[in-house]
Amino acid sequence: MVSMKFPTEKMSSESSFLFFRFMNNRAPSNKRYQPTEYEHAANCATHALWIIPSIVGGILLYLLSDDHWEEISAWLYGAGLSSLFIISTVFHTISWKKSHLRSVENCFHMCDRMVIYFFIAASYTPWLTLRDLGPWAANMRWVVWVMASGGTAYVFFFHERFKAVELICYVAMGVFPALVILSMADRSGLCELLVGGGCYVLGIVFFKSDGIVPFAHAIWHLFVAMGAGIHYYAIWKYLYTPVNQPTSTAR
């Protein structure tokens, strides 16, 4: 008996093929996802595009600084922002083109995970340093860097072992320091901070969707870039433009 394929079935199979050619199967919980060639290229491009803007942005804040504390905050924030995009791009490039250098690739994968903690701490630094804070909240200026150091140590000893714990650590560090908002007399920029934070949170959905959504990691990169851009705008507008420069107790 001759089997017949209806046009709808043929179209469905073709669309499925086109859908899955852009991604590999989902990796087991104890292994790292291996992107396709298309995904590798997208992973590199979506963060490489922001390297130069992040460096220029950090320099701009430094040039706008009026005192020592603003210069330190600009330097730390600019370094954290540009390092995030640089290390991510280097790791994804090595992972794509130099897969035989497993030890080097693994080292940069660890650095890629570690720099996220320092990026979060650097993103909070201008707000914690240049805004007036209550007595208890002022301690958060150094607590965020202790948390970043702890996260780095965690990656060093438990890299890729407990992925859920690692994700919880990122979210906790991203959310917990925001409690200082409760002690701020000047809350200008809060809307931008919430929108930028929302971009990161929404991006986490794609961060955990490799093997489910094509280009999931590259989409995560785009959400990171959007969140970082919105937060940079808030820092520039509310902390470094002359009409909005605050008087900080840290000065």
Rank of each mutant, 00 (worst) to 15 (best):
K237W: 07
E71T: 07
C191Y: 08
I235H: 05
A234M: 15
V175Y: 01
T93A: 14
V56L: 14
N106Q: 11
Y238L: 13
H40V: 15
A234K: 15
V104Y: 03
I59G: 02
A185P: 12
F91V: 01
G197E: 05
A185M: 12
Y170P: 00
A148P: 02
E105W: 06
N244C: 09
H100L: 13
A48D: 09
L61M: 04
Y117A: 04
C107G: 04
M23C: 14
G227Y: 06
S123E: 13
L190I: 11
A27F: 02
M114E: 03
L64P: 00
G189M: 03
L130M: 09
I204M: 05
V180F: 01
G134E: 09
L101P: 01
E71L: 06
A185N: 15
H68K: 15
F6S: 14
A48S: 13
L128D: 00
F108H: 02
V144Q: 01
R187Q: 11
H100Y: 07
A164I: 13
T8L: 15
S83N: 08
H221G: 00
G227W: 01
V205C: 11
G198N: 09
C191W: 05
A48P: 08
V155A: 00
I94D: 10
W69A: 14
I181Q: 09
E70G: 04
L18W: 07
M1D: 11
F157W: 06
R21P: 00
F91G: 03
Y240N: 08
G203H: 01
A138R: 13
A218P: 01
K163T: 01
T89F: 05
K31V: 13
C191G: 01
I51M: 09
G58E: 15
V155P: 04
C107Q: 11
G134C: 08
R141M: 08
I72G: 08
P126F: 02
I55Q: 04
L130F: 02
D66M: 11
I51Y: 04
I52A: 13
W127G: 03
G198L: 06
N139K: 15
C191T: 12
D132G: 13
F206G: 10
G57Q: 05
W96S: 14
W96H: 10
W96Y: 06
S183G: 05
S149D: 10
S54G: 07
S188K: 08
T89I: 11
I219Y: 01
A27G: 05
K31Y: 03
H40M: 10
L182I: 12
M110C: 10
G57Y: 10
S15Q: 10
I51V: 06
A122T: 10
S188M: 10
S123Q: 07
R187F: 08
A250R: 13
D67C: 07
A122C: 06
L128G: 00
M173V: 03
F6Y: 14
A250L: 14
N106G: 01
M23Q: 15
